[in-house]
Design a protein around this nucleic acid. Structure first.
Lengths: 245, 245
DNA sequence: GTTTGTGAACACCTTCACAGCA
DNA sequence: TGCTGTGAAGGTGTTCACAAAC
């Protein structure tokens, strides 16, 4: 699913900085490779073949090799990839060595759960602030952090170098929150609210929407049902599936 | 982000059932169109142009028209689309008229939040059961439902026609849960656990992973920083962005 | 005149298959 | 011999631009 990306660094011909411009599809898979590599490292593996890593990450090996080749890749023919080296490479590319500061806006049902999510820290992010617009919620302690009023965002953004804002508010508040984040200098937003955000050029938005995921699955249920119900007789499907976001 | 889909209904040439086989990318956008249409319907609009609907859904109008044309579309040239008709069409295609039964496995931090998510019911789904493997959690009441032990899944699956299973367990339990769901006849899975699931042919899996989303945003932060830091001088970007899952 | 529906061009991504290197 | 890196082929998805329909 399911985000856009217009705009492309128009001028700037010639002097390209030393930053590989990876295909978007590749970028989206790097975190999965990284996870698989961390597992492998824990099990003591020093090297891993493209076949093995691909299996662990749930992709096919040709795709994996092409993805890694884009980062200038450090594989050895006849052997495979050096696990530790590849971890470093991918973490560098993803910018995970920076421990970016994340703030979370909206401490309702979902926001609470996100604030308590352990995966943040373990993956190179620090939650530095929780915000809500509801005065009744301000002051509450969650996971060692105090909920502040959304008005304090600019102050916090100035103090910490806020990199990413996570929106977990109701849909009708989300655009205003996004505007506030952008005004405070945040240039990456992860939006859990079920609505389309509009943001200025240079700001990246990704969206996660439970209802949309369920509806996509519902479509496939519907499709599968209509295939088994009507046609020929036997066989209802032939291949494994797992739908493409 | 980012799922696969192999397998394709191999035999079955000829007698194709009356079910349009939409591009996966189109399917992923239909729920967004639907949401926009519901908003429009509330504001009293009877018809909407492709331009207007596209803006509301955050896509460009050519894409929207092509998407809708795949469903045999009911637009009128010079006028636009009939809002109510289009809502019905899309809800039919997505199979939302069936109010599919959903179960949720794993009632921890995230599971609690998902169980309380109001969007379920409002989008044509019924949560019919909550499961957990921890006896300490069994019996707890959440949002009017009682948490049951995961062992009871087969019984519940038999009683209700379970269509979709949502996995909100830790990663190390997720594969076992998926196996259990599949064994109980569930053919669609929404996985919030940070791991790759393997499932037999005919089962659809979609994955939602907070850490991956953050890492993708981190990459773009890194990229943006390396563009403003090094090259020429001025201009850091030119276009709006919003990254592609 | 307005707006849809769509062929054709283009861009992106995946997969194959093998040359090249350890 | 084994496995990576990659050109080339094939698919899928997007965008353009315009003819057809209202």
């Amino acid at each position: 699913m399911s985000q856009q990306r217009h705009g492309s660094t128009p001028g700037n011909a010639g002097a390209v900085p030393a930053f590989p411009d990876l295909p978007e599809a590749t970028i989206a898979r790097l975190p999965e490779y990284l996870r698989a590599l961390h597992h492998l490292a824990e099990t003591g593996a020093d090297t891993i073949s493209s076949e093995g890593l691909a299996a662990a990450a749930g992709v096919n090996s040709a795709k994996l090799r092409k993805d890694l080749s884009h980062l200038g890749s450090y594989g050895t023919r006849g052997v495979g990839y050096d696990v530790a080296l590849l971890v470093d490479q991918i973490e560098y590319i993803l910018g995970l060595d920076q421990r970016r500061a994340v703030c979370l806006v909206g401490v309702g049902n979902l926001g609470h759960a996100l604030a308590g999510y352990a995966g943040f820290a373990s993956r190179g992010f620090r939650i530095v602030a929780l915000f809500d617009a509801d005065p009744a919620r301000v002051g509450e302690q969650i996971n060692g952090l105090t909920v502040r009023h959304f008005d304090e965002l600019p102050r916090v953004a100035a103090a910490e170098a806020l990199a990413i804002g996570v929106i977990a508010t109701p849909a009708n508040a989300a655009q205003a929150v996004a505007d506030g984040l952008v005004a405070a200098g945040v240039t990456s937003i992860l939006n859990f609210a079920p609505c389309v955000l509009s943001v200025p050029p240079g700001v990246d938005v990704r969206k996660v929407d439970l209802a949309i995921e369920l509806q996509i699955l519902s479509f496939h249920e519907h499709r599968k049902a209509s295939l088994t119900a009507l046609p020929g007789g036997r066989e209802n499907a032939g291949g494994q599936e797992a739908v493409g976001s």
